[in-house]
Design a protein around this nucleic acid. Sequence first.
DNA 1: TTGTAAGCGTTATCAC
DNA 2: GTGATAACGCTTACAA
Lengths: 343, 343
Amino acid sequence: MQSQRLPTLEDVARVAGVSRATVSRVINGIRNVDPQLHELVWSAVDQTGYVPNKLARSLVTRRTGTVALVVSDSETHDDDPFMSRFFSDPYFGRVVGGLMSVLRPAGVQLALQMVGADGHKRLVGDLRNGQADGAVVLSLPAHDPLPGMLADNGIPAVLIGRPPEPVPISYVDLDNSAGAALAADRLAARGCTCPAVISGPPDVPASVDRISGFRHTMARHGHAWLPSASGNFTQESGAEAMRSLLSSHPAIDGVFVANDLMALGALLVLRDAGRRVPEDVAVIGFDDSSAALAARPALTTVRHPLEDMSAEAARLLLTRLDDPTTRVTSIIYEPTLVPRQTA
Amino acid sequence: MQSQRLPTLEDVARVAGVSRATVSRVINGIRNVDPQLHELVWSAVDQTGYVPNKLARSLVTRRTGTVALVVSDSETHDDDPFMSRFFSDPYFGRVVGGLMSVLRPAGVQLALQMVGADGHKRLVGDLRNGQADGAVVLSLPAHDPLPGMLADNGIPAVLIGRPPEPVPISYVDLDNSAGAALAADRLAARGCTCPAVISGPPDVPASVDRISGFRHTMARHGHAWLPSASGNFTQESGAEAMRSLLSSHPAIDGVFVANDLMALGALLVLRDAGRRVPEDVAVIGFDDSSAALAARPALTTVRHPLEDMSAEAARLLLTRLDDPTTRVTSIIYEPTLVPRQTA
DNA sequence: TTGTAAGCGTTATCAC
DNA sequence: GTGATAACGCTTACAA
């Protein structure tokens, strides 16, 4: 039942009546080879049904034709809620789609690498050992040492999202600040007189940028100070923040929330409090996640060109792989406002 | 700048003052080894910062600790709309999440393999060569020869979704027929007197099962015959089908559509025709895709336990890898109705 | 232009 | 128990 041993270079060489080296040359398209033999070899190849063994090849060339998509999984709970949340959000799929749009035409494969806080060392080791030619890194928890480790070890890598701390690694990111400005302008245009803000964790760069961008723009609209509360990006924390905001500043008539999930929580609390959205309080989220669409009323939010960003990340990485001397760069994308029902 | 050559088994052996073989034994946890040396070796390991080279290991063991997620990409357009559609639908992420929930604890990695109609042979070759230990296969176009090729070559594989033609490969699937029955019951319960159906491509198993299940159940509700039209799973084809249905059978007051995308098209046509949904015509889709939620009114549809199915697929594959004599099986899951606004 | 042979870093089969 | 040594399948100097 088990199928036979596969044909190797040696076998092809025997059939073609040439040396292993010649077959290798033909297959790898190296010039210096007699056209006669060239043809001979190829016919031997499909006579034998030969397929090159990538493992063996990679072992010597130190190139795998694969890049790793590293998902840094901070949670360590036993019944890991991270995965279901992370993967079911369109975010993940959009990133993969964007990466693939560049990688596939280039004949490069994608290997998914989830890594917990403990796995960093092993990951770096594996990458150095040639498990993959490079890495695209996603979803970094605050203070994650991974970017630094990658840089220190000279591993070609590109981040999606600015690293928490400055590190000599290329990345693509959204202009979170500009996105927040969009939200601020929208609320201002609606005539909000008492806008507030619900921020995310203070150690996540995206979160910080969103809040500071919002504050800055609101200041330009004459709101020097804003009632604020913070959460940790979960729905429940958003609800909690909204409750606290409502009790300390009942006059609030607009709120910018640093991500959609928290905005969802805020929406629920507003409804329970008898505030109509958007008539009494306008709400704007961030991310344009599936949650935004699912919300009733549908959530007005800020959207990334995530596919484009991911595609560019892939391009950056491939360039770097081709030419290791390529300089570290960053590319920042512009967000757009998705007007739905809440603002 | 380039970091040094990595330590190898040999280096560790030298530091520990033992042979390469012994180090290998210690690292792979083989019993017959003096506790003294055991400790000695481990200290040499982290003194040198040694990390095993998986490539080299796989080359000899013929085991990679990786499974391939094969996405059979039928479309061959230049500006591939398949990818953006496929990856942005939560379907993909849910599958990955389900697989990972089993694979990750087992220490198995996932490699994404997109393969067009041309790539089948190479894919099988790569798999036989040990690129991956096995494969989970997704999204099969009709008449795809891949399952047969996998079976013929003795490649451990599990399909998500019944193969178009019978093949000795394990698979997990949804009881599409039961899902359709749910839809039929719902329409019947609403008191629909003239239910109709929009089917998908006749060569896609899931599509066929859905329609026959619907017909069967409707027959039990006294509707021996149903107006029907068919599409190809795209929104536009759904619209077209609805138009034809409406003109041939204006009395229609309920319609079951074989997937959400087509249902979306149907919804649009109904609105244009001035029919209220669900008051005049009730609509039920299938898949619970993101489109269902995005629809206005939100689409009532039938949902898969896709994460569970995928997790089980991973389990099946792992079992098979452990014990190649495992019998081919299939596991069928029960769908549920997601009542939203259209029925 | 082609062949010979030396690795790439492991594991596995032997003797000792 | 432990250590040589031969694979694993390929690429690549170096020779011819």
